[in-house]
Structures are given as C-alpha cells and as structure tokens.
C-alpha cells in the first residue's frame, strides 16, 4: 500500500519532469535560505551560550516565554495591539482597493497616472522623517490647525491627546501606504476585458452597478490573496510608525507588543527576541490556517493551498 503510493508519487513527478526541472532550482534556493537557518527558532527554548552554539546550549524550557508574558503591562500591550490591528484591517486594508477603484473611474490618462505616482511617494520616506513632519503639521501651531481654523475649529495638539491616537495612527498609515498598496490592484485591473464595460454601458448599467458587477469581482481574487498573505502578520501593527509618533501622554494607549518587547530586549538577548517572534508567528499561523479554510469554504479554488 505504502509502496504503491510511493511509486505513484515517483510516476507523477516523472510525468511532470520538465515542470520539476523548472521548479527545483528556485525551490532549493528557497530551502537553503529559509529552512536551513530555521533551527535558530530553538534559541527561544535555550540559554544561549555563544561558546556552545545554538544547538549545544542548555535547554531553558519555557523560561523566556514566562518572562515575556509576566512583565508589567503585557496585557495592556496585547490589548492595544489587537485594537490597532482590527482598526487597520477595517480602514487601512480596504483603502488601496478603494483608491484603485476610484482611479479606475478616471478617464483622463495623464490625470490617473499623475495621481498614481504622487500617492505612492510617502512610501519612500521612513517613519523617522514622516514622524518629524507630522509633529510639525499636527502641532498646535501647525498647518492642519491652520486649515481647520477656516472652519472655525479651535486649535488642538493632535498628537498628544490619547483619544485621537488610534485615529491618527490609522489615518497616517493610510496616508503613507495607500498609493503603494494599490499597485497590485492596478495590475489586477489591467486584466479586465474593456469590452465588459462597453457591454454594460450599452445595457444602460449605472456606474455603481459596473463597479459592483465588473470591477469588484475582477479584484476579488487579489483582495483575497492579499488578505491571506497579510493576516499572518496580524500582530505586527507597525512598530516604526507607532514608535515615532508616541509621546509621554500617548505611550499608554500606544504601547504595542513590539514596543513592550523592545523595552525588555537587552543586549544580545536573542532568546527573548526569538520567543516574542515565535509567539506572534504562531498566532499568525493560526489566523492564516483559519482564514484559508474560510476562503475555501466560499470558493474551493481560492486560498493559498
């Protein structure tokens, strides 16, 4: 029985030998650089002695995990992380899709291209720089308040109010990533047959119906795959962004798992870093598996595997 299965596998590889030849070089490179160093995960369960190497170091059990979860403020950091993650999925994830759809409705070629190019600019500036700009712009005497004053709004120091913090995190993340994120959707839109639109117009379908019945279905597989690919990093809610926007008054609501771990990460504390990474990854894996299952329930041809 087992023997048969083995032979069947050999046979199916043999019948796909050209595909296999195409596949193997890249796959071996992948194994070499992704899986050979994978034993480093063990360091999370070890007391790392440099002289003994990772594998030779003594086992430490779950010590590093206990230390990680027992620190002051862990639950607060976990809660903040989950809130920010959910907010980002609600508002940041759909933003590039909406941008792509809106741009798709623009007829003027030069206008569409210019907007595309301009909106993707902030992606190229690190949060250290964007943070500096935002502190000035959102400060009490900054440009944003000057604009609001035309509408009779009293000036606010936006970045020091804890109640505005999540809103600002979401809005600035959209601002920084929307253009860059929409590129993959532009690529997907390029696959739509223009005759579909022409036919719809001829049938007298309204703009909304065209978006709903042609554009969105064409984007759906890409949206699904982007969701599946990103959900594994659910607990990584943007360390650079939050770290560079946090102040003395917002650090309570802005404390996320990454900043929490950073505070504990001493010099060369590889064990704790690995333990924290393993925690987020395991959580992420769980989400990916569940999400993939859900997607396949809906349409068994979608999903990653």
């Amino acid at each position: 029985m087992k023997h048969n299965r083995f032979r069947a596998a050999i046979r199916s590889y043999a019948s796909n030998k050209y595909l296999l030849l195409m596949f193997l070089p890249g796959f071996l490179l992948f194994l070499l650089f992704q899986y050979v160093p994978m034993y480093g995960i063990l360091i999370a369960f070890k007391d790392f002695r440099i002289i003994d190497g990772i594998l030779g170091s003594p086992w430490a059990g779950l010590k590093h995990f206990e230390y990680l979860f027992a620190g002051a403020g862990f639950t607060n950091a976990l809660r903040n992380t989950l809130i920010i993650a959910l907010l980002k999925y609600a508002f940041v994830f759909p933003a590039p899709i909406i941008l792509a759809i809106l741009l798709n409705e623009i007829r003027l070629n030069w206008f569409r291209r210019t907007i595309q190019t301009v909106t993707y600019l902030p992606h190229f500036f690190s949060w250290v720089i964007l943070g500096g700009i935002l502190f000035t712009f959102l400060g009490r005497d900054g440009g944003f308040n000057r604009i609001l004053s035309y509408f009779g709004v009293q000036p606010v120091s936006w970045l020091i109010e804890p109640s505005y913090f999540y809103g600002i995190i979401v809005a600035t993340d959209v601002w920084q990533s929307v253009g860059w994120g929409s590129i993959i959707y532009f690529a997907a839109l390029a696959g739509i047959d223009p005759t579909l639109y022409e036919a719809a117009v001829a049938d007298g379908a309204s703009r909304w119906r065209r978006i709903w019945h042609i554009t969105l279905p064409a984007l759906a597989p890409t949206i699904t795959i982007m969701l599946l690919l990103s959900i594994g990093n659910f607990l990584s809610v943007g360390f650079d962004q939050i770290y560079n926007l946090m102040t003395a008054t917002t650090s309570e609501v802005g404390d996320i798992l990454d900043t929490y771990v950073l505070r504990r990460l001493l010099t060369m504390n590889y064990e704790l870093g690995a333990a924290a990474g393993l925690f987020s990854s395991t959580f992420g894996l769980l989400l990916v598996v569940v999400a993939n299952r859900l997607v396949k329930l809906y349409d068994k041809d979608q999903g990653i595997w």
Binding site: P37, Y39, I41, G232, N233, G273, G277, G284, V288, I304
Partner: peptide, 13 residues
C-alpha cells in the same frame, strides 16, 4: 507559507 511566518533569526543566517 510557513517560511513567511517563521524564521531562524540573525545568527543562523
């Protein structure tokens, strides 16, 4: 997919 989430860290690399 597994490799996207888990990695061995800096030293083994």
């Amino acid at each position: 997919v597994f490799s996207m989430l888990f990695n061995g860290g800096l030293i083994p690399m």
